[in-house]
């Protein structure tokens, strides 16, 4: 009965137990709530997008190459976490660990770029308190960065604590962490579109 004890896992170990299935459902509801959190931050940002007072305007400071690189890194990390889950479904524990570690490394690379970017903006006079636009920008992009930081720490901790092998107990944990990671990438799609690309295009967004 107990698959974990025999070293044989069912085909989709993350959904093998009721607890696992409930975790995944609960996590999706949480992601619905996260969507609302980010949505309200996006709405705030859009309402304040022209309120940069004397500070630098978005199109004066954003560097499209840096944003393209960050986007590419995060998109690739989303793909590597898919590979990790494929490894899990193939019952290939080493493959899962390998791709999750790659995901973590790419996550740290993204964070490094973001810190570099924020430091650069700070020296240009674009700060959290420089204008309403600055506050909205750092709250939205910073919240996303905070999620990335939480994600890399969470996945690292899972990897460190579950080195012995895959079970029906830890499989849902890894699966849910990969859902979270994909969600972060989905939010970034809208950040690079609404904040950066529209910011570079200049000023009056919307209709």
């Amino acid at each position: 009965m107990n698959h974990a004890d025999h070293g044989v896992l069912p085909a989709e170990p993350e959904k093998a137990t009721l607890e696992g299935r409930n975790k995944i459902l609960g996590f999706w509801l949480f992601l619905g709530g996260e969507t609302v959190l980010f949505g309200s931050l996006f709405a705030t940002y859009l309402a304040l997008r022209t309120q940069y007072v004397n500070g630098p305007a978005p199109h004066e400071i954003f560097q499209i190459e840096l944003i393209a690189l960050a986007t590419f890194i995060l998109l690739t990390s989303s793909l590597t976490s898919v590979f990790a889950i494929i490894g899990m479904h193939r019952q290939n524990f080493k493959m899962m660990l390998f791709w999750f570690w790659i995901t973590v490394i790419l996550g740290f690379a993204f964070l490094g770029l973001e810190i570099f970017e924020f430091v650069h903006y700070y020296h240009e006079g674009h700060t959290l308190s420089s204008s309403a636009y600055g506050s909205a920008f750092y709250t939205l992009v910073g919240f996303h960065g905070g999620h990335v930081l939480f994600g890399v720490l969470w996945i690292s901790l899972l990897l460190i604590k579950n080195r012995k092998g895959l079970t029906v107990v830890n499989a849902p944990k890894f699966y849910v962490a990969s859902l979270y990671w994909h969600f972060i990438d989905v939010v970034w799609v809208f950040i690079f579109t609404v904040v950066y690309l529209m910011g570079i295009l200049g000023g009056q967004g919307g209709a």
């Binding site: 969507t35 949505g39 996006f42 709405a43 919307g206």
Partner: peptide
């Protein structure tokens, strides 16, 4: 909910 928020913020 997000869509509603965004439309409100924009218009």
């Amino acid at each position: 909910i997000v869509f509603t928020c965004i439309v409100m913020a924009l218009y």
